[in-house]
Simulated scan of single mutants.
Amino acid sequence: MYNKNLTDSDELSRKSKALYNSKDWENIKVMAFERDNHLCQICLRKSRNTKANLVHHIIYVKSDYEKALDLDNLMCVCSACHNKIHSKDEKEVFAGEEKQKNVRVIKV
């Protein structure tokens, strides 16, 4: 679906490691948590308020490194949902929600 033809190389591993240790990543994570009200976006779709503790790349860094710091490519999730995303096929996790992936909660 979103993450076909993943590339895996030493160069990408070095770039990813540098990304996750960068100030830019720290800044964009803060922005994502604030945008999503620190709530897991998957749980929220199931009417559950669960605190998010991770920021997930919708399109993986291995699929498109250019989207690594794109706020629209990030979603806040709890550890349980993040594990489900990575342990199952994405189609199962996001079943029927293709149009809702970019829906965000707005603080009032």
Rank of each mutant, 00 (worst) to 15 (best):
M1D: 13
M1K: 08
M1H: 14
M1G: 05
Y2F: 12
K4E: 12
N5G: 07
N5A: 03
N5I: 04
T7C: 01
T7I: 14
T7K: 04
T7Q: 11
D8F: 09
D8T: 06
S9I: 03
D10R: 06
D10V: 02
D10H: 10
D10C: 05
E11T: 14
E11I: 14
S13C: 12
S13Q: 05
K15G: 03
K15Q: 10
S16F: 05
K17Q: 15
A18D: 08
L19G: 01
L19T: 10
Y20C: 11
N21E: 10
N21F: 07
S22E: 13
K23F: 08
K23C: 09
D24A: 15
D24R: 13
E26T: 09
N27P: 03
I28H: 05
I28N: 09
K29W: 05
K29N: 04
V30H: 13
A32V: 02
A32I: 03
A32E: 01
F33I: 01
E34C: 08
N37Q: 13
H38G: 01
C40G: 01
Q41D: 04
I42T: 06
C43Y: 12
L44H: 06
L44N: 00
L44S: 00
R45Y: 03
K46N: 13
K46M: 03
S47Q: 11
R48S: 11
R48M: 05
R48E: 13
R48G: 06
N49P: 01
N49T: 11
N49C: 11
T50K: 10
K51S: 07
L54S: 01
L54I: 05
H56Q: 14
H57F: 08
I58Y: 10
I59F: 06
Y60V: 11
Y60R: 02
Y60G: 03
V61M: 01
V61F: 08
K62L: 09
D64G: 01
Y65P: 00
K67C: 10
K67G: 11
A68L: 10
A68Q: 02
A68N: 00
A68D: 10
L69H: 09
L69Q: 10
D70K: 14
L71G: 15
L71V: 13
L71K: 08
N73V: 00
N73S: 12
L74F: 06
L74A: 07
M75Q: 13
M75C: 11
M75H: 05
V77Q: 00
C78N: 06
C78P: 10
S79H: 11
A80C: 02
A80M: 07
H82F: 00
N83G: 05
K84R: 06
K84N: 00
K84E: 07
I85M: 00
I85F: 01
I85P: 01
H86T: 03
S87N: 00
S87M: 07
S87D: 14
S87V: 09
K88T: 07
K88F: 12
K88E: 14
D89E: 14
D89N: 09
E90V: 05
E90W: 06
K91T: 05
K91S: 04
K91C: 07
E92H: 05
E92R: 07
A95R: 09
A95V: 06
E98F: 15
E98K: 15
K99R: 07
Q100F: 12
K101W: 13
N102F: 08
V103I: 15
V103M: 14
V103C: 13
V103L: 15
V103E: 12
R104I: 03
V105D: 14
I106W: 03
I106Q: 13
I106G: 02
V108T: 12
V108C: 08
